[in-house]
Amino acid sequence: MIRQLILKKLKDREEKNYEYVRVSELGGCPLAPALRLKGYKPRIDEKTLLTLELGNGVHLNMQDILKDELEYVEQEIYDHELKIVGHPDGVIKDTIVEFKTISPWALKKAEVLPYPHHIFQLTGYMYLLRKEKGLIVYIEKSTGEIYEYPVQLTDEDIKILKAKVNLIYVLSQQDMETLNLLDKETLDVKDWQCKYCFYKHHCPVNNKGGENIERENSAYSS
Rank of each mutant, 00 (worst) to 15 (best):
D12L: 11
L171R: 01
Q174H: 12
K9I: 10
K16G: 07
H201C: 09
V97E: 10
Y20K: 10
Q121P: 03
I146N: 01
R43F: 11
I77W: 09
H117Y: 10
L128W: 05
Q63G: 01
K162T: 04
Y147K: 14
L54S: 11
E14C: 09
L70T: 05
P150A: 03
R3V: 15
A219C: 14
V137P: 03
L70E: 01
L181P: 05
I146E: 06
G57P: 01
L66D: 03
T143I: 12
R22K: 12
D89M: 02
P33N: 10
D175T: 01
L153R: 03
K41I: 06
T178S: 14
K83M: 08
E98F: 02
Y78F: 15
I92P: 04
Y40I: 01
E214A: 08
K16L: 13
Y72E: 10
P104S: 13
V21E: 07
V85A: 00
L54P: 00
L122I: 01
I102M: 12
E140L: 13
N61M: 06
L37R: 05
I158H: 00
V151T: 08
D155T: 15
Q63P: 00
G57H: 00
L49I: 11
D155G: 07
K184I: 03
K195P: 00
D191V: 04
A32S: 15
V151L: 07
I96M: 02
P88N: 03
E214T: 02
T143F: 06
L153Q: 02
E185S: 08
